[in-house]
Amino acid sequence: MPDGKKIRVLIAKPGLDGHDRGAKVVARALRDAGMEVIYTGLRQTPEMIAEAALQEDVDVVGLSILSGAHMTLFPRIMKLLKDKGMEGILVFAGGIIPDEDVPALKEMGIRAIYGPGTPTGDIVDFLRQNVQ
C-alpha cells in the first residue's frame, strides 16, 4: 500500500569502468531500507545522469566511479544539476576517490564520499537524516 512520500534515489555510474559491485550492493541496501532506487547502469555521461535525475524527480543522486575520472566528471554533473534547477538535490559519491580530492568535491556540493569498506547502513542513515 502506498504510504505517502518515498525517498527516490538515482544510482549512476559515470565514466567507463565496469566495476558495479559497490553500486549494486548500495542499490540493494537502499531498496531493503524501503527506498526506490533508479539504477541506470554503466557508462553514464554527466548529461544522462542529470537528465535522469530530473525526469525521475529523485531526492538523492549516488555516483560510483573507480576509473579515476571523478575530478573531470563530477564537476560537470554538479553544474548540470544546478543548471536544471536541482541544486537542492542530495549528491553522494563512492568508489576509489583519494582523500586529497575530498575537500574539492565537498566544495562543489557533494555531501558525502564513501570509500571501500563503508557499511551500507551508514549510507541509509545518512540519507534518512538528510533528505527533506
Partner: peptide, 17 residues
C-alpha cells in the same frame, strides 16, 4: 578504458579516462 571499449581518445566518452 576507452581502448578497452573501442573509443578513440577524442571520443566524448573518453573525457577524463
Amino acid at each position: 578504458l576507452p581502448t578497452q571499449l573501442g573509443f578513440d581518445s577524442d571520443h566524448p566518452l573518453a573525457e577524463g579516462e
